[in-house]
């Protein structure tokens, strides 16, 4: 099975719209995973039925049982995050500050501190409008551990693809270079980098590509809004050439992307002209890699 991960480093490049288009073009041949769990938007274009849904627990937070607490203050002393201030004469864990290391529970002489698993979101396996399935998730508000939820979504999607005998897994990856994107990338067979010809687009492309290189994954690049700045587009051309990244396609600036989105459609359903043709050809290329 091939695992194609689409990432962009920077947001707003059209990554999700493009991923959804590939998912649409892939139809029944593919399984789809939305690993951008922080801003999971694929479902707005894929109409999932959320048939199966499960809570996701990950990480722990400290909680102090005030009845057992003898107010020795040892927990507050060892906590590196100053997460246990004294409030109204009580030691109270501030859940937003707690890192879940559990050091406090280890030093508490009366065993007053318990480490409780946190529900950080939920994940679903859904039937989507293209006649296949999508694995997606929703991260709880302010939740930690999005990297782990990403890994969960990916693993479930992989297992599903194998079970259903699908050849291709399409993954909408997370932004940034931190733990969620690391989880999105691990195990990928091919990475599609979506960028735009702007100073920030190029900056983030280079940074995220360095990460891709560390993983030794082959990569291709899509330049969206390519005609916004020809000089910057050329700069991307030389960069991908130098790094041996295949240039999959260039897409012109087109507000139809947004129009399609407002109707809950992928751009390839909405547009019958040039953009559709470009994405059709790109998908054919990517599929063969």
């Amino acid at each position: 099975m091939k695992e194609i991960v689409i990432i962009s480093g920077k947001g707003g490049t059209g990554k999700t719209s493009i991923t959804a288009s590939f998912a649409y073009l892939g139809g029944k041949e593919v399984i789809v995973a939305d690993c951008d769990v922080d801003a999971a938007d694929m479902h707005l274009l894929m109409q999932p039925d959320r048939r199966e849904s499960e809570d996701f627990y990950s990480g722990v937070l400290a909680e102090i049982n005030q009845e057992k607490c003898i107010k020795c203050g040892k927990c507050a002393e060892v906590c590196r995050w100053d997460a246990i201030p004294v409030i109204d004469n009580k030691y109270v864990v501030q859940s937003l500050d707690c890192e879940g290391c559990g050091y406090c529970a280890l030093v508490c002489p009366t065993d007053a501190i318990s480490m409780n698993e946190q529900n950080v979101g939920n994940w679903h396996i859904s039937n989507i409008k293209t006649g296949t399935k999508m694995v997606h998730a929703k991260l709880g508000v302010g939740a930690d551990n999005s990297g782990k939820l990403v890994a969960k979504v990916k693993n479930e999607a992989k297992a599903l693809a194998e079970k259903e005998g699908k050849e291709i897994l399409i993954v909408d990856g997370s932004p940034g270079i931190g733990c969620p994107v690391v989880s999105s990338l691990s195990g990928a067979s091919y990475v599609v980098l979506v960028t735009e010809p702007s100073v920030s687009g190029i900056h983030d492309l280079k940074r995220v590509y360095e990460l891709v290189k560390k993983f030794g994954i082959r990569a291709g690049c899509i330049i969206n809004k390519a005609d916004i700045n020809i000089n910057k587009s050329n700069e991307i051309h030389s960069f991908v050439k130098k790094e041996n990244i295949n240039l999959i396609c260039e897409i012109p600036y087109d507000e139809d992307f947004t129009k399609a989105m407002t109707q809950g459609k992928t751009i390839v359903e909405f547009d019958n002209g040039k953009i559709k043709q470009i994405l059709d050809e790109s998908w054919e290329k990517i599929k063969k890699i």
Binding site: G11, D38, L96, G142, A143, N145, S146
Partner: peptide
């Protein structure tokens, strides 16, 4: 601030 709603955003906005 960083984008999203997870731990880096909380740190940056709290």
């Amino acid at each position: 601030a960083p984008p999203g709603t997870s731990c880096p955003v909380i740190e940056a906005t709290k």
